[in-house]
């Protein structure tokens, strides 16, 4: 008696689940199929890796498997494609200027190295999306082959000299502090902070010094850097590299400054950090709207195990 009751309950349960499963199949967020405006042009072996491992979310040439079309799997895939295309779309390569194309590729490979891409849950079901160490080697070699080092670049030297003349005549004073589109202000006092690390970026021909405010410097001394304490502020300054024939590289024109301010409450919606980027000595705020922070976060997210900070700070 008891046994048959149990069996009946089971049957009802399974039927309910089955009906639910059928109903949810009708909830279908749209997956669009926009045209390919310009496909990325890379050597065939690189292209093959990108198509196999990235294109199903990062292009307008997606290939859905049969199981991708079944909810709830379908929902996840639709979301991946939507977000994937927003972050990087190999089918709309013409929408990016040459410098951004290069930057996107280096960022993408770094996301792979950090294990952030392909998304682990996606890769688990889509085994073909897995990037092997051999694939990674091909990608890295391709990127390294793209590094160009113009020596004694006249245009860059002129750009620096122009900035020098301007900086000395006007002393670069701001009546109103430049403000990023999320409200984070430029901090002129960064010049008086101590550096936490220099960095040579051969991927994009810049060199950087990352400086930290007093709270950051103390946190390093106290070994309280994960998470960084409230009020920690970093300023990352980037310049052109100016290289001479002897392989001596000095700082060229000022490119940009990027700021990160730690405050869990104030910046809750942007992962606990206030982000800003100002371009050129005129300190032009980066981006179209406050959503520019998505770019910052996406790039820094693989560093989640060290509070979204890339730098390995040295101690003073």
């Amino acid at each position: 008696m008891k046994k048959s009751k149990k069996a009946a309950k089971w049957k009802i349960g399974v039927s309910v689940l089955l009906v639910l499963f059928l109903i949810v199949q009708f909830i279908r967020p749209e997956i669009t199929h926009p045209p390919v405006t310009r496909d990325i042009e890379v050597p065939a072996e690189v292209k093959a890796i990108l198509v196999r491992t990235c294109y199903d979310c990062h292009s307008n040439q997606i290939q859905l498997r049969w199981f991708d079309k079944i909810a709830p799997m379908y929902w996840g895939v639709a979301q991946h494609i939507k977000e994937g295309r927003e972050g990087l779309n190999f089918s709309e390569w013409d929408k990016l200027d040459p410098a951004s194309r290069k930057a996107k590729l280096w960022e993408a490979v770094n996301q792979v190295i950090a294990g952030a891409m392909p998304l682990k849950d996606y890769e688990f079901v889509h085994r073909s999306a897995k990037i092997s160490s051999g694939d990674l080697k091909v990608l890295k070699q391709y990127l390294n082959s793209m590094v160009v080092k113009p020596l004694e670049d006249t245009a860059k030297i002129n750009a620096l000299n122009k900035q020098y003349t301007q900086s000395q005549s006007t002393a670069m004073k701001f009546e109103n502090l430049p403000r990023a589109l999320n409200g984070v202000e430029f901090i002129p006092d960064y010049k008086n902070w101590l550096p936490i690390s220099p960095s040579e970026r051969f991927d994009n021909g810049t060199m950087r010094v990352i400086l930290g405010n007093d709270i950051a410097i103390k946190a390093i001394q106290d070994k309280q850097v994960n998470p960084w304490p409230k009020g920690t502020t970093f300023a990352k300054v980037a310049w052109d590299q100016l290289e001479d024939k002897e392989g001596h590289i000095r700082t060229g024109a000022f490119k940009q400054i990027e700021i990160m301010i730690k405050d869990e409450e104030k910046y809750r919606s942007t992962k606990g950090w206030g982000w800003a980027r100002f371009k050129t000595p005129k300190m032009i705020p980066y981006g179209k709207d406050a959503m520019f922070t998505n770019e910052c976060i996406n790039c820094h997210l693989p560093q989640a195990n060290q509070d979204l900070v890339f730098s390995s700070p040295f101690k003073h």
């Binding site: 008086n192 410097i217 590299q241 392989g247 001596h248 590289i249 003073h316």
Partner: peptide
């Protein structure tokens, strides 16, 4: 890469003037 404590860096009031790289 950390600097010797003996330098008493903060007290000296040092600030960054420039940075450079020597590839050789």
């Amino acid at each position: 890469a950390s600097l010797p404590e003996a330098l008493n860096w903060e007290k000296a009031g040092y600030k960054v003037i420039t940075s450079y790289i020597d590839k050789k």
